[in-house]
Write a protein that binds this DNA or RNA. Structure first.
Length: 301
DNA sequence: GGATGTTTACCACTAT
DNA sequence: ATAGTGGTAAACATCC
């Protein structure tokens, strides 16, 4: 039995799906969004397994980004030249890994087509108006307290109890008043509370900003050893949870912060179309978003 | 031309 | 048994 930290371990395929790997990378970024190349980089830095056969897994990863609604594409701003768009997590994707497995989600996050229709009021449109309609982003004092703007976002983006699946409080069961649009907000120049940043940085054990620490400090799959033996600390998912429950290795505490069956998506009575649009790229990149809306209307009527 | 992004198809595996 | 999910391959389009 190889000991934690040995290469025989870290060279193994990590027990994470591409979805969770990608989510880790995104959540580890300061702006909660990353270009594809940086997602690659993140994964390769932390998981030696993915330093080989790059063509194969990167194709799979791109497939996942496009195929899964839990990932949204955010166009670069004009002052952010570079290849490709930024990728972020959909704020409404809920707790995809509430079953405690990072290999297999309980349910695939899927956005209703109809959502594309009425996203004019969604944050993404907010983004659009700011950057494509020539409107100036609000002055800092207008939203210096994110909370002053956030409730507005929350009112139509997610229920009050919304927790991002990869937010630290989903992993350790803490409460915080925030929402993913923070990432987009930050992209737009909104301040992201240091509290949130630090929480996210501590969220995934092997996502710590310090890349490639000494092997001695790490266990299997690059997981920090110290997290294997956390004492009194919140129960982080130090040990990757297998698909099948292993005796003594139950679901990650805190991951199932919500009661069984609880939905993190649209609450009853709230029209999902009022939530943030998912694959919003079409609206963001087109010079004529109305046309996009029309085509969606045509499709959904 | 290479990187990025989308889509389809197939298969293996798991949950229900 | 069936449906759902994830991984992989591949073709194709678009962008830089």
């Amino acid at each position: 039995m190889p000991r934690p930290g040995k290469s025989s371990y870290s060279d193994q395929k990590p027990p994470y799906s591409y979805i969770s790997l990608t989510a880790m990378a995104i959540q580890n970024s300061s702006e909660k969004m990353l270009p594809l190349s940086d997602i690659y980089k993140f994964i390769m830095e932390r998981f030696p397994y993915y330093r080989e056969n790059t063509q194969r897994w990167q194709n799979s990863l791109r497939h996942n980004l496009s195929f899964n609604d839990c990932f949204i594409k955010i166009p670069r701003r004009p002052d952010q030249p570079g290849k490709g768009s930024f990728w972020a997590l959909h704020p409404d994707c809920g707790d995809m890994f509430e079953n405690g497995s990072f290999l297999r989600r309980r349910k695939r996050f899927k956005v209703l087509r109809a959502e594309h229709v009425s996203c004019k009021s969604a944050p993404m449109m907010h983004y659009f108006h700011q950057h494509h309609a020539g409107t100036k982003p609000p002055a800092h004092h207008e939203h210096a307290a994110v909370g002053s703007r956030l409730p507005h976002f929350q009112s139509y983006t997610q229920p009050a109890a919304f927790r991002h699946p990869f937010a630290i409080e989903n992993l350790i069961g803490r409460e915080y008043k925030g929402a993913l649009p923070l990432s987009v907000m930050h992209h737009l120049g909104y301040p992201v509370p240091a509290q949130l940043s630090s929480m996210v940085n501590s969220m995934w054990p092997h996502v710590l900003s310090d890349p490639v620490p000494s092997a001695a400090d790490y266990g299997p799959f690059g997981v920090s050893k110290s997290l294997y033996h956390s004492q009194g600390a919140p129960a982080l998912p130090a040990v990757p949870v297998p698909i099948k429950a292993t005796p003594g290795l139950g679901p990650v505490p805190g991951l199932s912060a919500l009661p069984p069956g609880a939905q993190l998506c649209a609450p009853p009575g709230l029209d999902k179309s009022d939530l943030l649009e998912s694959k919003s790229t079409a609206l963001l990149k087109g010079a004529a978003p109305v046309e996009t809306l029309r085509s969606d209307l045509t499709l959904t009527r």
